[in-house]
Design a protein around this nucleic acid. Sequence first.
DNA 1: CCTCCACTGAAACAGTCGTGTCAGTGCTGT
DNA 2: ACAGCACTGACACGACTGTTTCAGTGGAGG
Lengths: 202, 202
Amino acid sequence: MSEEPTIASARKVELLEAAYRHSLAHGLVDLSLRPLAAAIGSSPRVLMFLFGNKDGLLRELLARARVDELAMLDHIREPSNTTAIGLAAAVERVWAWLAADEHRQLLKLWAEAYARSLIEPDGVWDGFAATTVSDWLAVLAACQPPSERNSEEGARRRTLALAVLRGALLDLLATADYDRVTAAVHYQLALFQHRRAAVPRP
Amino acid sequence: MSEEPTIASARKVELLEAAYRHSLAHGLVDLSLRPLAAAIGSSPRVLMFLFGNKDGLLRELLARARVDELAMLDHIREPSNTTAIGLAAAVERVWAWLAADEHRQLLKLWAEAYARSLIEPDGVWDGFAATTVSDWLAVLAACQPPSERNSEEGARRRTLALAVLRGALLDLLATADYDRVTAAVHYQLALFQHRRAAVPRP
DNA sequence: CCTCCACTGAAACAGTCGTGTCAGTGCTGT
DNA sequence: ACAGCACTGACACGACTGTTTCAGTGGAGG
């Protein structure tokens, strides 16, 4: 009666990786066990055995996608783990990663999960959107110099940086117009050089 | 043999409006005819008769949502139809509309349709994401003074403005942290006052 | 050798899906 | 009064869904 493993195993990670590749290509909306199993050389019976149920598989797929996302975030501050590289440099590096062709599928999957978690905040999608917001904000904060990091203006600046990156990403995913969107991001980088702008109206 | 109206009719617009309200509350992902019909006091048979098939209904729902979106865009330049109000003022007005509580559901529906059209570019969702990008960019361009409108920098500025609005919207929908996100948008408005920033590196 | 255990195949379960069929309603114009 | 049209109810069809039941594999450890 050990019908609920939920732990790792060689075959499980192998199938999860295959299912992940399939999800990157076809999205999660229409995911169903029989076609998925047929595509990755397995059977619905095995998927149920290894992941408990469909929600368990979905959860592990989202976790797998999150691994790729967090790996990117770690790479941002890589060259200098000790000194803060500044918000502008962080935005530039993140954008270089987001705009790369090979990440297009992953980012579309991310957008799908994000939107889904806005509509169905319960169950599998619970907190996905809110989690990525705080993940990214934390990384951007870590890139700010300490004096800026703890100020009110610093919080505004990193929330704004996150908005620019996410908004530009949405644009890029829809239009694939790399030049126009990248020019806009670089324009923002120039604006960011003006460290202390006039404080907005109260 | 008139089994395909696809045109307007009193009952049709009434049911479409009811289905639209239902979609705002529950999203489009799990929409299916029988529960929907039961919720809005109709029957799957009638929905099929009036909309042809489920895709027809979905198409009209997306069109209905687009009506609300375009009505907002028209309201942006309302007070002065003749003179351009400038990009910063346009962003401020759009953000006021986006951040209003009563539009939260519509904007979540919009996010869902946007993400879906990225993953399934064919069929019902065809071009939804790309269309909204160009719709909004056109409105922002119309708000720019003519001298700015046709310049390279003007194009960068409105693409950036769109990214800030969309990114801030994503943040707001996920965290509902109105104060933090609005402060970031206002910070960007201050940055926008510096009309001619240093040109980004080539 | 024999047992245990991770894994698998085939088939069936009850339920839901979109859609089609056939038969009506009830109101409108003539 | 009668024809026509917009709309509706009841029901069945085949396909597909997640999940379960039962019966096996095959290899590793005692």
